[in-house]
Design a protein around this nucleic acid. Structure first.
Lengths: 346, 346
DNA sequence: ACCTGAAATTGAAACGTTTCAGGCCGCTCG
DNA sequence: CGAGCGGCCTGAAACGTTTCAATTTCAGGT
């Protein structure tokens, strides 16, 4: 046992100073600028710190510094492996420079998102990585109004408004539907979550582009709404799909969770994939390849998105900090990639 | 636009007080005890707050209060849907009482875990929900030494040492292996992650119990080590499995991620599940049911674990706070449930 | 003996809150 | 009319740091 005679938070720098027979300023220097302190004193103070189990109060430190060492990350759905992967990428990059990461879950709800943004502002977080749950841009407005550095994740933004790292969702949707059309499908359903999410909208737009470029009428791709973006919602959508008058021959889902849910529903009803209905998902989460019928999906470089976003945020805070010389926001758009598997093969 | 003329953090309670023509104490009361302030003053102060875009500094507040309004949650693997679900359960319960949740990922590494525990101590978090990455109990020791309230998640602890919410892993392992033995299997491999994790050890112990109770020799269940607990590690293990001299007829995995990886490896090698090799996983994550061969798995009530842990933590902090009357730690052990699917059916 | 400069240390201000003892005012009660 | 009271408000202390100007100490140069 090394010590810890007192309870954390009970012993402050003052008590350490008293026991070591020095002033508080010196103790602070031992911790933050050891070079300024003589060897003898340094050793004595370190001993006192050890003996008392002193832990510096980051809270007090932050108060003085005006900003915290924590970056907040707000994602649409922690239970979605895609976001978990993005978070992991960001976390690694931020930990490397000694910043803590607070991962939070808006669950796609604008009101939960607003709650969290308020919390972040009160906490004076260093910055925020956020995938907006709100299509209206109110998220960005709120952050800018409060002067909190931020980077949009998986959603793009004009460069004069802020940094963003996204994947070209319109292109992704285009690739998916183009693939289905090439396979001969002419009745395709788009199973999408709430349309106020940009991702959901853009992927549909991309799909419609593909339809038009093929010289086909718009109604070749018809949306089938879904209120959430999880497996259960996918099962619901699958069931509704089967009740449709003109049953589609292919389904494009806004993400893999939905696609896996649809797959389960189709399977339960004895509908064969891809023979009766072809299926394409989005995100290419690890489980897509392991599904009952391996899932064709649009792959996004999840970890890279997270890492890149973290780097942009660091650049922004560094440059904004010292001598506020205008920071040039960057808008990074990564490319998706279609991974064809059994679920859409003839 | 409602205001926000200044940058967040720039305007404090003092400036608000000046503009509203009152003292700082009154502004504080408007925010925290509105009843103590006259209507007229309250309105005037509120207007000033709005106009200036004032946001209370939680940092300063915490400094005064001595503790923060944030609870930390440290899990083994955020990318594992089981933990994501646990986190979700805890988050909901804590948000309901106005506490923020900081979810962090130790990735099963004791050193990352130690880093995070140090961060939490400096942040003076209200409490910690943790699944230890370190089998030795050093995690618990560290937390207790620092006086940080904690609840162990998915890991049990004697009641005199602290609160814990776990699922009976020994029983779960027993159920899984008993099921395989009943189906006639006599060569069973246990694919487990690093043995320093209690979960991995206990599930194996349970399996061995089942073997013994069936009056069979211990080597019916042989461990096949794996350094991590993810899908890729499962694929590795699956490949090694196939090279074994006496190829087992069944495989029990320490979690579903491993099982899905094994499944992929077996499938790639043309080995049929369950015909050639039966497979049982653990956790019953949502994707287990949607796998190429629906996976038999030991289900754990994930969300409930999270919620229960959060409640215990709240009880502990509430009771410890006011007048330190000895808090009775609780040790809650939930029951697992075997869900039989195709991967282990004859 | 005196001055200089570097090295080591001190002491106090400042960060933005909350809390609390007290002050002031206008009423009501005796 | 004075005392007492309740409602409203003020001003300052305290929380635990960091930072910085000021002070002390000491060795070395003249």
């Amino acid at each position: 046992m090394t010590g810890a005679a007192r309870v954390a938070g009970k012993v402050g720098i003052k008590e350490v100073a008293r026991q070591a027979g020095v002033s508080v300023g010196t103790v602070s220097n031992v911790i933050n600028n050891p070079d300024l302190v003589s060897d003898e004193t340094r050793i004595r103070v370190r001993a006192a710190i050890e003996r008392l189990g002193y832990v510096r109060s980051e809270t007090a430190r932050q108060l003085r510094a005006g900003q915290s060492r924590i970056v907040a990350m707000l994602v649409l759905d922690l239970a979605n492996p895609f976001f978990a992967e993005v978070a992991k990428g960001a976390e690694r990059a931020l930990r490397d420079v000694g910043l803590g990461v607070m991962v939070c879950n808006s669950a796609g709800s604008p009101s939960e998102e607003a709650d969290y943004l308020a919390l972040f502002a009160e906490q004076r977080v260093r910055g925020v990585l956020v995938t907006p749950a709100d299509g209206s841009g109110r998220t960005v407005e709120t952050l800018r109004a409060r002067g909190i550095p931020f980077v949009l994740v998986d959603r793009s933004l004009p460069e004069d408004q802020g940094c963003s790292v996204s994947v070209d969702d319109v292109l992704g949707g285009d690739m998916a539907v183009r693939h289905l059309i090439a396979a001969g499908h002419r009745r395709i359903a788009y199973v999408g979550g709430p349309m106020h999410l940009a991702q959901v909208r853009d992927r549909f737009t991309g799909g419609r582009n593909a339809v038009r470029e093929a010289g086909l009428p718009d109604d070749v791709l018809t949306p089938l709404d879904s209120d959430r973006l999880d497996v259960a919602a996918g099962r619901d959508a699958g069931a509704r799909l089967l009740g449709l008058a003109d049953r589609p021959t292919a389904v494009f889902c806004a993400n893999d969770l939905l696609a896996l849910g649809v797959l389960q529903a189709l399977f339960a009803a004895g509908v064969r994939v891809p023979h009766d209905i072809a299926l394409v998902g989005y995100d290419d989460i690890e489980f897509a390849a392991a599904a009952a019928v391996p899932l064709t999906s649009v792959r996004q470089p999840a970890a890279r998105i997270g890492r890149t976003a973290a780097e942009l945020l660091l650049a922004e805070t560094d440059e904004t900090g010292p001598d506020a010389h205008a920071h040039a926001h960057r808008r990074i758009v990564l490319q998706p990639e279609l991974v064809v598997r059994d679920s859409s093969r003839a």
